[in-house]
């Protein structure tokens, strides 16, 4: 496999085929809890992306020195350190967002998407690929968070990028879009049950698209394979 193809495959895996949110269903807890607005979703998504890239790179770097018995504690240590760093940094520079993300920020430590990638990919592959995998998986996760957040925000309060300035600085006030004005919020979209339903519909949509792709794809010619003869040397 050429290098380009490998990266392409990694990107495809992370963004679509093996998307941590839609397919692996990892890290659902923060996914469902913080996606009430796009801003929150982006905040958590970027934090996760950052941690994922760093942890993948680090795990890949140290993979040769890590004995298999203690690999999980070490991975967790690495991830936890990064998360704590991110938490401290956010606390320092995006204070309000830090407050609104609340408990879910430290929860990144236990986000299965991260430890899953560390265990399944980074611990077996060289640094470059592992970092790229982290990037793509993180982007995939971010993508799901973003879409979910957008849908819930539009449905729930009729806006988009409400409070973006908390994440991106004061200029971001202009990002806020009022899609339509509601007298009342559509609370189901704001509350976690709405997130569950929306998530389910997204997964259904993804499967639907996959099925359509599979249907339209031309059938591969079945190549005949070598049958293995059992105990043919008998005589």
């Amino acid at each position: 496999m050429t290098n380009g193809a490998e990266y392409k495959e990694l990107a495809w895996q992370g963004l679509w085929k093996n998307n941590p949110g839609l397919v692996q269903l990892l890290g659902l807890c923060p996914l469902l809890a913080v996606t009430s607005t796009v801003t929150n979703a982006l905040g958590l998504g970027i934090a996760t992306l950052f941690v994922l890239i760093c942890s993948n790179a680090t795990v890949s770097l140290v993979r040769k020195w890590v004995p298999k018995e203690v690999r999980i504690p070490i991975f967790v240590l690495i991830i936890a350190s990064f998360v704590t760093c991110v938490q401290l940094l956010m606390n320092a520079y995006t204070f309000v967002l830090y407050q609104s993300l609340g408990i879910f920020l430290p929860l990144i430590v236990t986000n299965c998407a991260i430890i899953g990638r560390a265990e399944a990919y980074a611990s077996k592959n060289p640094v470059k690929q592992a970092t790229f995998d982290g990037l793509m998986m993180g982007l995939g996760f971010l993508l799901v968070l973003f879409v979910l957040g957008a849908v819930r925000e539009v449905l729930g309060q009729g806006t988009l990028f409400d409070g973006a300035h908390l994440l991106l600085g004061e200029w971001a006030h202009i990002l806020r879009i009022e899609v339509y004005n509601l007298d009342n919020q559509f609370l189901l979209a704001v509350l976690p049950p709405g997130a569950f339903i929306a998530m389910g519909l997204f997964i259904a949509l993804k499967n639907f698209i996959d099925n359509k792709i599979a249907e339209s794809a031309p059938k591969k010619e079945a190549k005949s394979i070598e049958r293995v003869r059992v105990n043919f040397d008998a005589s």
Binding site: I225, E226, R227, V228, R229, V230, N231
Partner: peptide
């Protein structure tokens, strides 16, 4: 069935 169709001898 031990048929070997899987590519393995048995």
């Amino acid at each position: 069935t031990q048929c070997g169709q899987c590519g393995y001898p048995g």
